[in-house]
Simulated scan of single mutants.
Amino acid sequence: MTDVTEPTEQPLDLLYSETEDDLRAAVRALLTDRAGHQTLLGRIETDSPYVPGLWKSLAADIGAAGLLVPEKLGGQGASHREAAVVLEELGRAVTPLPYLTSGVVATETLLALVGESEAAAGLLADLASGRTVAVLAVPLSTAPDAEPPVGDSVGGVADAVAADVFLVPRADGLYAVPAAEVSVEAQTPLDLTRPLSRVTPTAGSGTLLAGPGASRAAVRRGLLAGAGLLASEQLGLAEWCLEETVRHTRERHQFNRPVGSFQALKHRMAQLWLDLVGARAAARAAADALATGSADAPLTVAVAQAYCSKAAVRAAEECVQLHGGIGMTWEHPAHLVLKRAKSDQTALGSAGRHQDAIAALVGLEPPR
């Protein structure tokens, strides 16, 4: 008699592969050379925070834009694990690039529509090559389980100023609308490295990609992937904060001793390290669940966002405080990291929204 066993999901793999380490080294070297913090401090006072030519180097030369796209559609055929590594490095450097919005959210949305629309497959090839930047025209704050707005004008759209094409949800489906047919009005964001805009497409413009049902599922898939991999960006922010704070407190002396040797500061940095370990586990779990198509991906993503968004803000706040007076200055990059962490805390659903999602997914009574 043949022993038949039920198939089981593979356990989560939280470790980095050799390929992921190589990708990290390439991305970090690029950002260190072209987009250091001092470069960004100079860019945020200009009309555009984007470093000229950096998107081409990351998206096309390294191939990061096509990591989530299968090879048969012109991409790299990698997974969310590799994309998470890219976002960790972009978080560490607080880099202004439309990777989360185009390389993850828009790409995942289009991947869900490949069987529905030839236009979606063609657009994916353009995104994977780095020639085109696409942005889903919903507010940055939209959670994966939220109903995206379908009005004539949508505010709070991230990276709209860099978009070549917009994915616009309407009552009758999802449309691909060229940037030339969209009015983009800049708004004032908290995070100057991730521009926000009000987007108003021309009435009746664009190409229909899919009907209402398929579009809602596709947008949800895109936002879920975005929320899951945003946790890796938040992990990168927290990593930089801890490393920079440890470095500073080793070099800064009071009473002829490094301030990092004071017991009270040791305890604060030890707590940051514990937060960072938890954030890494949660972010890696979310990336792996998305990569393997786990049925628990919505739950794992919600856990990662509920934890990592708070951990990044705590790390950034401690970074500012433990740097003392210099941490409060415009010349030090700590304020860039703090603003990105605070902005990320409400991006793609707040921590409270994700905690409610966790309660619903596991059948618990949500907190009142």
Rank of each mutant, 00 (worst) to 15 (best):
R92P: 06
D13N: 11
L237A: 10
L111H: 05
A316M: 03
S215K: 06
A121W: 02
T101A: 15
T207E: 10
V104N: 03
V133D: 05
R24S: 13
V362D: 06
D21V: 14
P149M: 09
D172E: 13
T5L: 13
G115R: 08
L242M: 01
H354M: 06
A180H: 03
G91K: 10
G327K: 12
E243T: 10
R198G: 11
V69P: 07
F262P: 01
P98F: 07
A25M: 12
V4E: 07
L230N: 00
M1W: 11
L41F: 03
D22V: 11
L100I: 08
L272T: 06
L274N: 08
A289I: 12
L140Y: 07
V219P: 04
T5V: 15
L209N: 08
V69E: 04
A143V: 13
A289P: 01
G53M: 05
R220K: 11
P52E: 01
P258S: 04
S215P: 11
A119L: 04
L14E: 02
A84H: 04
P144S: 09
T249N: 12
V301G: 12
T207M: 08
S129D: 06
V157Y: 09
E71I: 14
L123H: 01
D191I: 06
V157T: 04
E88W: 02
P98A: 14
R81Q: 07
Y99T: 09
H335W: 14
R24F: 04
D47L: 15
E181F: 03
T292L: 11
L40A: 14
A218E: 03
G91D: 04
Q76D: 04
V104M: 09
E251I: 07
M328Q: 14
E147W: 10
F262M: 12
A60S: 15
T300Y: 01
E6K: 01
V51N: 05
P144W: 09
A119I: 10
Q187G: 13
L41V: 05
V246D: 11
A225C: 01
T245P: 00
A120Q: 06
Q254V: 15
G222K: 10
A93C: 11
D159S: 14
T142M: 13
A158M: 13
V154I: 15
V313C: 09
A316G: 08
L235H: 07
A227G: 10
H335I: 13
A203T: 12
E317P: 02
E89I: 12
R24I: 04
A351P: 00
I358N: 05
V277Q: 11
L30G: 00
E243R: 11
D61W: 05
P258F: 10
L322R: 08
L14R: 08
I62A: 01
S197W: 03
G130D: 01
G206P: 12
W273R: 14
T32V: 12
L235K: 01
V313Y: 13
A146K: 07
E9P: 01
K339Q: 03
L196E: 03
A26M: 10
P366Q: 12
V246P: 00
V135E: 06
E244D: 15
L272P: 00
D126R: 15
L87M: 15
A341Y: 12
G122W: 00
S17L: 06
Y50D: 07
L229S: 07
A316P: 09
E82C: 03
S153M: 07
G228T: 05
